[in-house]
Write a protein that binds this DNA or RNA. Structure first.
Lengths: 275, 275
DNA sequence: CGCTGGGTTGACCCGCGTCAAGGATGGTGG
DNA sequence: CCACCATCCTTGACGCGGGTCAACCCAGCG
């Protein structure tokens, strides 16, 4: 029995639009689910932090014509589901998505949220199937990056290869920030600071969260009630101003301090106690 | 301010043998810390699941001469420390390592354990510095894979590029297994099943853990006392037989069931209720 | 021997989950 | 325009899982 066998995951077997879209990518004639209305990488303001980040204009064009197609997702629509065959990576162009798994007891575990400029489905490369499901939290646009095309292109364009690995690394880094043994308060503070750094305008301290309290709580391993209470406490402490999904961070330094400095998104040079 | 700035991590500033070893790799004349006693990839029994996994014999030779050097680590010795500049990835050849971070309050958070055949330090690619520290749990040997050499080699050998991405994916997949909102019991069960699948002989149900209960507990977000108690409970239930660091898994199916089927390492076709 | 570090066990308690009720908001239809 | 409802969010009361503290055991070792 080859070593690979032991890594197989337990799949839910759902057919989805995304699986079809994945198929589509390998057979470019079939254009179902692939909308033509799309932003060019060369004019996308997120390009610097996305895959074409390190490319010259020429390379970006090559990249674009080689791999990029775009898919529109309505709020609540699935991009792929656990068990779908893996054919493409995805990049969020606008909007935001949630990756989650449902365990055998029926509990939902939110693996990660993905905002504009972020790469999705890296965890599917290993097994060749998506271990998690991905759903749009708001109306979103997602760039489809057929994996085979992407890797062969990466061979031609070293800067692209470099960027793919960087984004894989970022994914691992980001995940580890909340994985530690932190209190509910610390996790929430970390989350807020990280989201602030990852949103479209990272200078802004205004967050418009796309996810429900339930999703946030699942991600942070909290009950939604606890989340609500801690947020209320933060507000009393003057750290934030929370109005439903609109949250204003009043004291970023205070939050970062609560976050126990484990988050890799911490703004550089903004710390209260540099020591 | 470029987007990259916001991702900078707060570094501890330690100089280590590993940092030097990293330097060494870029200046091959300096052979300090690089032992010549090393196993060839072509004769390494772990090669199939390691980086040379998909290579032909010729390619493996090319890979080997291009990048592989070996470093011996005594138990408790550090491979790198948080803040060290990133120059190389590492692969465990024998023994096992612990990656951890220490937060601002002084608590240790174990990011991951790495066993033979596994890739380390992927999380350092993004920032160019190691966010975590890595220490050998037992006497270990580690293959040093200079990053620049590795990526340029990956361009020449598509199978190598493919394998690098697969291992990155595995890393992400593995991390997410324990990240969810599981009970202490579920996390421990998942851990045991995962370690069993990852050890040298995955058929064996005998584990010789290299880490202390404290390390295990830190990794599982538990107090060592809780870990001890749950292990005792597992023993009473006939699931395991625990004698200090030697643990025999008596009922793998029972453990996998407790693990709530969220671990990607679950053995295929061994489930009690396939339904 | 005694010392040391790791592991176990028991008693107690607190952080957070659970359960339940109530409030706000937005969509839909009348 | 309002009535109605579903969904999301908040708040309070209470209980439990697992953390904390302390004592003890056990193996290894000088």
């Amino acid at each position: 029995m080859p070593a690979g066998e032991w890594w197989k995951v337990k799949f839910q077997d759902h057919r989805t639009a995304a699986a079809l879209a994945g198929d589509t990518m390998e057979r470019p004639d079939d254009t179902v689910h692939v909308k033509s209305t799309r932003l060019q990488c060369t004019s996308c303001r997120l390009a610097p932090q996305c895959l074409p980040g390190l490319l010259t204009a020429d390379q970006a064009h090559q990249f674009e014509s080689g791999v990029q197609r775009c898919q529109s997702l309505g709020s609540g629509e699935h991009l792929f589901r656990a068990g779908d065959p893996f054919r493409s990576l995805f990049a969020v162009q606008s909007g935001s998505c949630k990756e989650y798994m449902v365990d055998s007891v029926g509990r939902e575990h939110v693996i990660s949220f993905h905002f504009a400029g972020e790469l999705m489905a890296i965890d599917a490369i290993y097994t060749g199937r998506h271990p998690s499901s991905c759903v749009a939290l708001t109306n979103s646009k997602v760039c489809i990056l057929p994996y085979l095309t992407l890797t062969s292109l990466a061979r031609e364009i070293p800067a692209l290869q470099k960027q793919i690995l960087k984004l894989c690394s970022r994914e691992i880094l980001g995940n580890s920030a909340l994985a530690g043994n932190f209190s509910a308060e610390e996790r929430l503070a970390t989350f807020l600071v990280m989201v602030a750094a990852r949103q479209r305008n990272p200078e802004s301290t205004d967050l418009d969260l796309a996810m429900t309290r339930q999703d946030m709580a699942n991600y942070l391993r909290l009950a939604p009630e606890t989340l609500s209470r801690i947020l209320a406490r933060f507000q009393k402490m003057g750290l934030v101003l929370a109005d439903r999904r609109h949250i204003t961070l009043l004291d970023l330094d205070g939050l970062a301090e609560l976050a126990a400095c484990m988050n890799p998104y911490a703004r550089y040079g903004r710390r209260r106690n540099p020591q």
